[in-house]
Amino acid sequence: MNANDLQSKLIEAARKEPLFDQVPYAFEKRIMARLAGMVPLNYWALWGRPLWRAALSCVALTLLCGLWSMMTPAPKSDNPDNFAQAFDRAVYASSDQHSVEDIW
């Protein structure tokens, strides 16, 4: 007996089997009863909600920083303790004391 032929014959039998698509009476009502109280998941809304929250927090933080910088008095430019001038002095301190040839 050829097993391949038997396999083909049985698969042919399965292909020819008519599809049984009968539905039990009022089956959709049963499913609707199960669905009562459920809400379909909206993936865009799931992502959107935390993103909106994060955006609002960022805007609030920006506004606070802006307000703080406006309220704080700006440092005077002729102030000897000005940070930029102090930084320059520190960087060029060694070159002021010795010339480049002395170092080499």
Partner: peptide, 25 residues
């Protein structure tokens, strides 16, 4: 349905349940 009207899902079930039953069988 996505807007929250769950009842609108029933016609979809009624329309497609024969095919789903045939597949499940």
């Amino acid at each position: 349905v996505v807007q929250g009207d769950t009842a609108s899902f029933e016609p979809l079930i009624r329309k497609y349940q024969p095919r789903v039953f045939a597949t499940a069988r």
